[in-house]
Structure formats: C-alpha cells, structure tokens
Design a protein around this nucleic acid. Structure first.
Length: 307
DNA sequence: AGCGGTCAAGTTGAT
DNA sequence: ATCAACTTGACCGCT
C-alpha cells in the first residue's frame, strides 16, 4: 500500500549526477561555459532515465530529483536558458523519455529545492531568488511529469505568524507551474505540523508530513492526528517523509540522519495507507530496499494522480 | 591515481 | 565567532 521513495542519489548503483562550480565555470569564455553546462545537463538527463529504470525494476515507486539536474541554472552570472545550450534538443528528448518511462513504470517524481529557497524571508532579494529557483524546477518538473515541488516554510524571524503572512502573499504571485506543484513540509526547528496545517488549509497547499521532524519538534498533535490532517490537505496521493536519528532520539542532535531506517521509527499508522513515503537515509537505495523488506510492504501497481 | 581545498545562495542551534 | 546541518559530496587542480 505504501509507495516508498528514493532521494536524489545512489550509493551502490553506478548512477551518478554531475555538477560544476560557479568559480570554475566563470573562468571559461561563454561559449565554453555553455558547452560544459550542456554536457552536464545531458549527462544528468541520462542519469535520471537510468534512475527511473532502476526504481521501476526494484519496485521503488518514487524518485526525488536532485535540485542541480541543470547545474547553476539560476546563477546570476553563469545562469542560462536551456534553449542556449548546444545540445538542447537531445536534453529535451531524453527528459521526454524520462516522462514516458516514469509514467509507464509508475515512478512518481518529486523535487525538493534546497535551503536557500525561502518564500517567508523579509528580504525581497531572497524571495526573488527563491521564485527564480522555483520557476527553474517547475520547468524541469513540467518536462518530466513531476507533481511535487516541496519546500520548508523558512525561518521564523522572531515572528512566525508574520513570516507565514509574508509567504501567503508571495504564493498568490507564483506562476501556475510552480503553484500547482508547491507543497510545504514541517521542519525540525521552527514550523511544526500545528503551525502549518491551518496555513496549508487556508491557502490550498498540501502539507508534506515529516514524522522525524515532528518528533524533533513536537506540537501536541499525535502522529495519527498529524497524519490524518496532512492527508486532508492533498488532492492527490499524499507525500510523507521518514528518517531515523543518527545517534538515537536522546542524542543532542536527533535531527541528523542515519544510514538506514529503523523500522520502529516508521509510524504504524502509515502502514495501510495509500501514500508516498520518501526515505531520507544516507544509505540511499539500500535503505529503501531494506525498509521495504523490513515492512514487508510490496509496492502495488497503483497510479498516483498526475498534474 | 590520490588527495586537499573549495564550493552561490539562508537560517538555526551547538560548540 | 565558527561550524555543521539541511534532500546529496563532487570537482578541480596539484602532486
């Protein structure tokens, strides 16, 4: 019943996503920059195709796509349009194959923009950069058929209600490809499910429920309550996150991720649900495969609702 | 081939 | 003040 998801990388499979640095790219003439970036984008498109094949063959029903699939896409100097890359046709063709293969194998695709994407920041430049990054990820998401772009609510800035209000105003200005995919996840420091659920309901944003973060930042809601309320915010298959603490729940840093998932950390309330659970564990595909074995959950042939 | 230094970005909490 | 974490170590340049 539960669809397990793999996050971004492999440790055992020879599937690698490549990247570069702005410092290195900045030393090249523009034509060489674009040639280099083009090669990376094409290599990453092919790696994504291989990742989808692997997931399909191993009954991993979801794959989270690396934010750097197109490296430096929104960088102020090195940034580029995909149409400017010499191999744009090949890149688009492979990504189209990714979409088709993911649909055929029922591998759900998601994005999780990194920590710099903050719609609640009081700084206009931070919000503008965040929107640019979301536009980029939505461009790729549209090409490959990904239905989720999941972010955190950001910092508290000493006044969480004001921060959420700022984010609410930004939401109304997002373009459809971003807005229709955007989800918000509870984090382990600032925003609990109780903080986010009213906001998500009011704004029609699905909430990604992370049970590990919820344990790190409790709010009076039980796992069962948070689960039920999170599901209510979704108009398609809900998305949850699971991870285990590196050094136990009593450690100073329970938020740090372990290599694998301790099956006791997987909420029993989730076992019979039709949901996607992304596995955040450093052992990557090995952790997903071990967790499925531990849970004796077989990913069924069940399609999620695409956008 | 191996290894050390470096990498765009924001915010938080530990040290 | 610095650092590590965050969805993730990868890459360049020197030896």
């Amino acid at each position: 019943m539960v669809r397990l998801g793999l996050c971004c990388l492999f440790i055992d499979q020879p599937i690698k996503f490549r990247t570069t640095t702005a410092t290195y790219i900045g030393k090249l003439p523009r034509a060489q920059q674009l040639a280099r970036l083009s090669a990376l984008c094409l290599a990453n498109a092919r790696a994504l195709f291989a990742a989808i094949i692997f997931c399909g063959a191993n009954k991993i029903g979801c794959f989270r796509v690396n934010s750097r699939l197109w490296p430096l896409k929104t960088h102020p100097e090195a940034g580029y349009k995909i149409a400017d890359l010499p191999e744009v046709k090949e890149i688009k063709a492979v990504l189209s194959q990714c979409r088709q293969k993911a649909a055929e194998l029922d591998v759900r695709l998601t994005f999780h923009p990194d920590q710099f994407v903050l719609l609640s920041s009081p700084r206009a430049d931070v919000v503008a950069g965040s929107v640019q990054e979301l536009d980029y990820q939505a461009e790729v998401a549209s090409m490959i058929g990904a239905d989720v772009i999941n972010i955190h609510a950001g910092g508290g800035y000493g006044d969480k209600a004001a921060a959420l209000k700022r984010m609410g105003k930004v939401l109304r200005r997002l373009k459809i490809p971003v807005r229709s995919r955007l989800t918000i996840e509870n984090d382990d420091r600032t925003y609990s499910p109780a903080d986010l659920l009213p906001f998500c309901r009011a704004n029609g944003i699905p909430m990604v429920y992370d049970a590990h973060h919820h344990r790190c930042l409790p709010d009076g809601l039980s796992v069962q309550q948070a689960t039920a309320e999170a599901i209510q915010t979704w108009d398609r298959e809900p998305l949850f996150h699971i991870s285990s603490p590196r050094s136990g729940w009593g450690a100073k840093q329970p938020g740090w991720h372990h290599d694998y998932i301790d099956k006791k950390d997987f909420p029993v309330e989730w076992r019979s649900l039709d949901v996607t659970v992304e596995v955040e564990a450093k052992a990557k595909e090995l952790a997903v495969l071990r967790l499925r074995k531990d849970l004796s959950v077989v990913t069924p042939f069940r399609r999620h609702k695409a956008i």
